[in-house]
Design a protein around this nucleic acid. Structure first.
Length: 588
RNA sequence: GCGCCCGUAGCUCAACUGGAUAGAGUGUUGGCCUCCGAAGCCAAAGGUUGUGGGUUCGACUCCCGCCGGGCGCACCA
C-alpha cells in the first residue's frame, strides 16, 4: 500500500495549508491540481511539485515567488535533502537517502502486493469480457479482448476495486439455432448417414464432430426419426453445454477464469427481459414507428418498416433503436439491455465491457437504456473498451481469419505454438485501440525484439544472482524478511538510487493505468524496469565494485541483494497483473 | 453525409492525461564477453509531433477549421 509520492503530496498539502493559515496564501484555494511527481529529467531531482504554477493566479503572485516561498518551508524538513525552484516555477526536491532505503524495505515487506492501491475504495465494478457465443472453440480473434479484459480486471483489483469477472453469452438467438441445426446434421452423420457437404450458413468446423460424438455416447440413436420439436431442445442444450465447456477449457490455458457466467435464456425465463421492456414501456419510451433509411450507405433493399422502437434519442443517442425485429422477435439489443438491467439490480454501479472494435457504437446504444432503467441511480456508468484487431502473420505472410475458410487458428493452437505467457504479454504491447501485428515466427524465435523475453530475462537474472549468492555465502538467509533487515543504507550509489526511484513509480503506474483503463501500460512499465535493471547489471562488468556480490563484504552484498529482490518482486508483481508466470531460468 | 478512433524518427510504437531538452525497439554505423547469464550493455545518427489557427505561465496532449487513414452507421451479435 505504500506510495512514496502520495506521502510527499500530503506533506506539500500540509505546508500549503500552513501558508494559508499564516496569510501567505488565500484561504479556500483549489488544490486539486497540485501534484507531486517525478520530474522528467532525473537530474532535476527526485520529485517535483507544480503547486506554485497552479496556484499562482489565484494567489495573485508570480509562480517563481510562490515557488521560493514553498521551497523555504520545505528546506526545513529533515527528510528533504535539497530544494530548488526551476523553470517556470517547478519546485524540485531530493530526498534523504534513508527515505529510499525505506522504499526498498516496503517493497520487501509488501512482496507481490507492492503497488496495491486504495484508489478504488472497494467500489464494485463488473467487467465483462470474452462473451463469445457458444458456437465453437475460442479462436485467435477472441484472444486480444480476452487478455485485455482479464488484465484490466486484475489491474482494477490491484487498484483497490471490488472486481467481478463476468462472461455473458447469448444462447437464444439465431446463432444458436444454426448451431442446433448443425449439431443435428452432424449427429445423423455420426450415426452413419451420408450428409454430403455442410450447407452454406451452418458451421463447418470439425469440432462439431466431437460435440455429437459425445451426444451419441450419451443418448445413442434416441433422436433419430423423431420430429424437430422433440430433438431440438435436448440437442441444443447438449451442444451449448459442451461448447461452453470447450471454451472454459480454452480460456483456462491462458489463465482466464470468470467468476460469473450469465446467459440470455435465463433472463428470458426469469422474466428480467420482460420486466425491463415493460419498465421502458411504463416510462413512455416505447412506440411503433418507422426509422429513416441509414445515410451514406448503399441500401438497395431498404424499405420502410414499422418497428417497435425505443426513444433512445431522448438520452443523447443519434437515433431511436428498434427493440423488436419485423417478425416480432427481440432484436439483439433488447436482451443486452435486460442484461445490463440485471447487473444494476445485482448492485453494480460501474460496468465495463470489453468488445471488439467491430462492435463500435454499442456503448451509444446501450447507455441510453441504462440511463432510462437506472432511474434515480444517477451514478450508474458504463465504459466500453474497444479492442482493435490482431493481424496474424506466419513467415511474413498474413494469416486469414475466417470461419468458412477452415484455416482458422484456435486459441489452443496459438498457445501450444508460442506459450501462454508470450500470448498474454504480447497482446499488451499496444494500446487496446490500435491494431497489433502478431508474428508467430518472430515470437517463436525468441529474438530480442520480443519484449516478453526481455522482461523474463531480467527476472531470471535476479534469480541467478541469488543462486550465485548461495554459492558464495553458504547458508545465507536471503528471504525477503531477512533482507529487509539488511543495512540498506549501504545502497547509495547514483546507479542504485536510480533503480530505486524507478521502482517507487510502480504504484503510480498502477493507478494511472487503472484510471485510464489502459492495461498495456503495465507491460511498458515492466519493459522499462527491465531495461534499467539490465543497464545497471552491466555496469558491474566495467566496474567490479558495482557488482551485487562482494565476497569480502557480506553486509554490502546483503544490502544489494535486497535491491535485487526488490526488482524481482516488482517484476513478479507486474507479471501477476498480466497473468504471466515469471521464470527463474531462461532456457531453449 | 453523421459518429467514434487515429496521424509522433525510415519502420513498429511510447510519452505518467496540460509540464521542463518528445523517448524506446527495430533498421543503419561503431564499440563491449578472462566478467554476478552477451536472449544483454554502451555510443553515433535519425523530428517543424499531418496542417492552419486558438486557449495559457506552458500544448503531442484541450478547442475550432482543413488534409490523410481505419472502423461503424435499420429488422446481425
Amino acid at each position: 500500500m505504500s506510495n512514496i509520492f502520495h506521502a510527499y503530496k500530503l506533506k506539500v498539502d500540509d505546508i500549503l495549508g500552513t501558508m494559508a493559515a499564516n496569510g501567505d496564501l488565500p484561504k479556500d484555494l483549489d488544490m486539486s491540481r497540485v501534484k507531486v511527481e517525478p520530474p522528467k529529467e532525473a537530474a532535476h531531482g527526485d520529485m517535483a511539485t507544480n503547486a506554485a504554477m497552479v496556484l499562482s493566479k489565484a494567489a495573485g503572485k508570480n509562480p517563481r515567488q510562490l515557488g521560493e516561498a514553498l521551497a523555504e518551508k520545505m528546506k526545513k524538513m529533515p527528510e528533504i535533502k535539497e530544494v530548488s525552484v526551476a523553470g517556470p516555477g517547478f519546485v524540485n526536491f531530493r530526498l534523504a537517502d534513508s527515505e529510499w532505503g525505506g522504499a526498498i524495505r516496503n517493497i520487501l515487506i509488501e512482496g507481490i502486493h507492492y503497488g496495491d492501491s486504495k484508489m478504488g475504495r472497494g467500489e464494485k465494478v463488473n467487467i465483462e469480457y470474452v462473451s463469445a457465443n457458444p458456437t465453437g472453440p475460442m479462436h485467435a480473434g477472441h484472444v486480444r479482448g480476452a487478455v485485455i479484459g482479464d488484465t484490466l480486471a486484475n489491474l482494477l483489483q490491484k487498484a483497490g476495486y471490488d472486481v467481478t469477472k463476468e462472461y455473458y453469452f447469448n444462447d437464444a438467438g439465431n446463432q444458436i439455432e444454426v448451431l442446433t441445426q448443425t449439431a443435428y446434421l452432424r449427429y445423423r452423420e455420426a450415426l452413419g448417414e451420408n450428409i454430403g457437404a455442410i450447407p452454406e450458413g451452418l458451421y463447418p468446423g470439425e469440432y462439431m464432430k466431437d460435440v455429437v460424438n459425445a451426444l451419441v455416447a450419451r443418448d445413442g440413436k434416441k433422436w433419430l426419426g423423431v420430429p424437430e420439436s422433440v430433438w431440438a431442445k435436448p440437442v441444443r442444450e447438449f451442444a451449448v453445454d459442451y461448447i461452453m465447456k470447450m471454451i472454459r477449457d480454452d480460456l483456462d490455458i491462458i489463465g482466464i477464469h470468470h467468476e460469473v457466467f450469465s446467459n440470455e435464456r435465463v433472463m428470458i425465463e426469469d422474466g428480467t427481459l420482460e420486466k425491463s421492456f415493460n419498465t421502458l414501456m411504463e416510462k413512455g419510451l416505447i412506440y411503433q414507428g418507422t426509422l429513416p433509411p441509414p445515410k451514406g450507405k448503399e441500401m438497395e433493399d431498404w424499405q420502410p418498416v414499422e418497428l417497435t422502437l425505443f426513444r433512445s434519442s431522448n438520452f443523447g443517442d443519434s437515433s431511436d433503436r428498434p427493440l423488436k425485429k419485423r417478425d416480432g422477435t427481440w432484436a439483439y439489443i433488447m436482451p443486452d439491455i435486460a442484461y445490463h438491467y440485471n447487473k444494476i439490480q445485482r448492485g453494480f454501479k460501474w460496468m465495463i465491457n470489453v468488445l471488439g472494435k467491430d462492435h463500435q457504437g454499442y456503448e451509444e446504444k446501450i447507455r441510453p437504456a441504462i440511463a432510462a432503467l437506472a432511474g434515480d441511480k444517477k451514478d450508474v456508468r458504463l465504459n466500453v473498451v474497444y479492442c482493435a484487431m490482431v493481424k496474424l502473420f506466419k513467415n511474413g505472410e498474413p494469416v486469414k481469419l475466417s470461419k468458412r475458410s477452415g484455416n482458422l487458428i484456435t486459441l489452443r493452437e496459438l498457445v501450444e505454438e508460442v506459450g501462454a505467457g508470450v500470448v498474454r504479454f504480447f497482446m499488451m504491447t499496444r494500446t487496446p485501440d490500435s491494431e497489433l501485428d502478431f508474428d508467430f515466427t518472430k515470437v517463436v524465435e525468441q529474438s530480442k525484439d520480443n519484449p516478453v523475453f526481455y522482461v523474463q530475462y531480467a527476472h531470471a537474472r535476479c534469480c541467478s544472482v541469488f543462486r550465485k549468492a548461495k554459492e558464495m555465502f553458504p547458508g545465507l538467509d536471503t528471504s525477503p524478511g531477512a533482507l529487509a533487515k539488511a543495512n540498506i543504507a549501504r545502497i547509495n550509489t547514483p546507479e542504485e538510487l536510480q533503480l530505486v526511484r524507478f521502482m517507487a513509480n510502480w504504484p503510480r503506474a498502477i493507478e494511472a493505468a487503472a484510471a485510464e483503463h489502459e492495461p498495456h501500460r503495465v507491460a511498458f512499465y515492466l519493459y522499462d524496469l527491465a531495461s534499467e535493471f539490465h543497464a545497471f547489471y552491466h555496469k558491474g562488468n566495467d566496474n567490479v565494485s558495482l557488482r551485487f556480490l562482494q565476497e569480502n563484504d557480506k553486509e554490502l552484498s546483503l544490502a544489494r541483494l535486497a535491491l535485487v529482490e526488490a526488482v524481482r518482486t516488482v517484476i513478479a508483481s507486474g507479471l501477476a497483473v498480466m497473468g504471466v508466470t515469471p521464470v527463474e531460468e531462461m532456457h531453449g
